[in-house]
Amino acid sequence: MSVIIASKIQSNPKYHELVKRRNTIGWSLSAVVCVMYFGFTLMIAYTPDILTAPIAADSVIPVGMIMGFGIIVASCLLTGVYVYMANKTFDPIIADIVQEASK
């Protein structure tokens, strides 16, 4: 990458917009996963009774099992959300930036 291209990108507001948006999304989604998983872990540690309560009076299935499955499914969904946003939003901006810089 030449110095000229680098300085063109550096002075392109679209690039700073991209970095800001992608970092916001990346760190926010990471925070969601951490809150979800460490919230679950803290519940295991401090309020296990909530997790082990059955989901219905006549069921043996504990609430925590649904939450555990929920975290697995949510992890897959959130990765899907990021990939979708990156394909739809970030990739076109990156293509723009690269094109403008190599003009």
């Binding site: 990346g26 760190w27 990471s30 996963v33 998983y37 082990t52 925590g64 555990g68 992890s75 990765t79």
Partner: peptide, 24 residues
């Protein structure tokens, strides 16, 4: 029983982090 699920969840949650922060 149920504890096995709690244990396995921890092995999955690193993956979204890999995607959001480092993969690309």
């Amino acid at each position: 029983g149920f504890y096995g699920l709690i244990f396995s969840v921890g092995w999955l949650v690193g993956w979204p982090i890999i995607l959001f922060l480092v993969a690309e």
